[in-house]
Amino acid sequence: MDSRNLYNEILTEHNMRPYYKHELEDADLVLEGVNPNCGDDIWLKLKLDGDVITDGAFVGDGCAISQASADIMLGLVIGRTKSEAIRLIDMFTRMIKGEAGEEEIEELEEASALKDISHMPARVKCAVLGWHTLEEMIGDKGGDES
């Protein structure tokens, strides 16, 4: 597949100037997500008010795809409830597998910039790192309270 447009403007912008890549004091949930093989390593931090994700941030290192994807994800889930976020994570995961419909991809807003990853098996893990980490934090398994 021609992956020439993988590094599109949305992705490079979020990689170069991430909005949510910073420390977050007094976070309610903190969890590390790692791709041992590629060395992508992020710490995801969330503030919650009841069921609502009121703020979020991440720090760490990794490839453009892992970093931009985490940044885009935070922009999408902040202000939403945990269950809404879980629904988006599910949708994103299916988009990466090439199983999401047009409407769903549209609902993912800027995250839809990553849809071509479905043709690039080697980079899937990078794209889903932030999303899987978030799922672990707010899903049934819970996360480390700090």
């Binding site: 021609d2 992956s3 020439r4 993988l6 590094y7 170069m16 590629c38 290192d61 990794g62 490839c63 453009a64 795809i65 980079r123 990078c126």
Partner: peptide, 14 residues
Amino acid sequence: DNVHPHDISEVLAQ
């Protein structure tokens, strides 16, 4: 500088 090696090899792969 500022480019993760996996992104280097991805661009070169293209």
